[in-house]
Design a protein around this nucleic acid. Structure first.
Lengths: 122, 122
DNA sequence: CAGCATCCTGCCTGATACTG
DNA sequence: CAGTATCAGGCAGGATGCTG
């Protein structure tokens, strides 16, 4: 039988159990750009250059790399239309829609924290 | 609660407006450790070494640095008891409680994503 | 337009040792 | 116990230029 590694009564274990999924999530969403890219795509499918325009300060190199990561992790879909010139569009996958809650929570907290700082430093 | 109306004609502006608070939040919560530290503290105030034990893999140096950041940003409170040896405890500030929603959303998404990967790779 | 190659820099991070 | 000092490595991320 498997060792049951989880003892619910120990708060330390409870803490670590809570931590694991959070670390998992942070590992996928790590870095400065992934969430901003996803947010840009929540407004609809976009082309490479359109995303670059929306996400302030990102370079082509970073955008390229981050998009690859996102595709690999099933968060973004890449579609190539064989026109000329080739038209490549990126869009969110159904699975990435599940990030809405995370994004909304972050957005709200960003606003809250800003107003907190204003009040504190006044 | 009022619907923050999104003007259809300026979808680019709407996107960037949404992006700013998210970038703000990510700037505060950046790095590998800040959220895990905060989560560890949601289970109650803790001493330096206790946090180090809960947050897997963190070094003293990192913990020290990150705690300073968190104190600076008003998310963590540092309390010194002048006993001998000195006892230092860290706890969340009321303001950092507002991160609960973010943390919960991340945790849920971490679990969701893991099950997504399992299904996909099977 | 889409996106990769190259180069470069700073920061994140780790390991070890040390103080009050 | 609660950190800080120092040294060092690696990788994220920025700037620029080039290809199909």
């Amino acid at each position: 039988m498997e060792n049951t590694v989880i003892e619910p009564e120990h708060s330390e274990s409870a803490c670590k159990g809570t931590l694991r999924p959070i670390r998992d999530a942070l590992d996928i969403l790590n870095g400065k750009w992934k969430l901003p890219i996803i947010v840009a795509l929540t407004f609809g499918e976009k082309r490479f250059s359109e995303i670059a325009k929306e996400v302030d300060g990102i370079t082509d190199r970073m955008l390229s790399k981050e998009l690859q990561d996102l595709v690999t992790n099933g968060l973004v879909q890449r579609t190539v239309e064989e026109t000329f010139p080739v038209k490549v569009t990126y869009s969110l996958t159904p699975h990435s829609k599940s990030l809405n809650e995370v994004i909304e929570a972050l957005r709200k907290w960003g606003l809250l924290h800003k107003s907190y700082l204003v009040n504190r430093d006044r």
